[in-house]
Amino acid sequence: MSETDGLPQPLAEIVEDFHAVGDQEKLELLLELSRELPELPEHLRENYADSMEQVVECQSPLFLTIEFHDDDVPGEGTAELIFSAPAEAPTTRGFASILQQGLSGLRYQEILAVPDDVHQRLGLGKAITPLRLRGMSAMLARVKRNVRDHVESSS
């Protein structure tokens, strides 16, 4: 089985990038991705802690919201992932950026089909503590739960 099996193309490309470099470079790539996490949209900046969901499983403060763009067919559409994490938490920001770049804009069913072991497929096991890797797993689980809840409520 390949590390990219079952992954949507944008996320598969990120996983391939991690596998193309050595362990030390993986950390550098994660830090680079942390700097690419988009700023919050204007409408969320002021009270983001009240309007976004905190992913408490993460060691650093991480907030998430999803903006759903429904199609005319009930339960179908695309999801835009929005994360907020402090600059002093580059690992958390890097993981959020991976999910934002790899999943944002995808169809609901594509997100729900993403394998739960994405955090392991990145090959960061030697560079990042298991607790931090579980934080990324929790981010993905929260995204999928929110998408699933939205699909069920709109069908």
Rank of each mutant, 00 (worst) to 15 (best):
L11A: 05
L11Y: 02
A12C: 05
E13C: 05
E13H: 12
E13I: 06
E13G: 07
E13P: 02
I14F: 09
I14W: 03
V15W: 02
V15E: 02
V15Y: 00
V15H: 02
V15P: 00
V15A: 03
E16N: 15
E16Q: 15
E16S: 15
E16R: 13
E16H: 11
D17H: 01
D17S: 13
D17E: 15
F18N: 05
F18H: 03
H19Q: 08
H19F: 03
H19R: 13
H19D: 07
A20K: 10
A20D: 15
V21C: 13
G22Y: 05
D23P: 05
Q24N: 08
Q24P: 01
E25A: 12
K26G: 00
K26D: 01
L27C: 13
L27E: 07
L27S: 09
E28N: 13
E28M: 12
E28R: 09
L29Y: 11
L29I: 11
L29W: 13
L29P: 04
L30V: 09
L30D: 08
L31I: 05
L31E: 11
L31Q: 12
L31K: 06
E32N: 12
E32C: 08
L33Y: 06
L33P: 00
S34G: 14
S34C: 11
R35I: 04
R35Q: 14
E36W: 02
E36F: 04
L37E: 06
P38F: 06
E39C: 09
E39G: 12
L40N: 10
L40I: 13
P41K: 14
E42L: 12
E42M: 06
E42V: 13
H43D: 14
H43P: 02
H43K: 14
H43C: 12
L44Q: 06
L44Y: 10
R45W: 00
R45K: 15
E46Y: 13
E46T: 13
N47H: 12
N47P: 03
N47Q: 07
Y48S: 09
Y48Q: 08
A49P: 04
A49I: 08
D50V: 06
S51Q: 10
S51F: 05
E53C: 02
E53I: 09
E53V: 09
E53K: 13
E53S: 09
Q54Y: 05
Q54T: 07
Q54H: 07
Q54V: 11
V55F: 14
V56K: 14
V56T: 15
E57F: 06
E57C: 06
E57R: 09
E57M: 12
C58W: 01
Q59F: 11
Q59V: 15
S60Q: 10
S60Y: 08
S60H: 09
S60G: 11
P61I: 07
L62G: 05
L62S: 04
L62Q: 03
L62V: 15
F63W: 14
F63Q: 03
L64T: 00
L64Y: 01
L64W: 00
L64Q: 00
L64S: 00
T65H: 04
I66Y: 04
I66K: 01
E67A: 10
E67F: 07
F68T: 04
F68D: 01
F68L: 10
F68Q: 03
H69K: 04
H69Q: 07
H69D: 11
H69W: 02
D70A: 15
D70P: 08
D70M: 12
D70R: 13
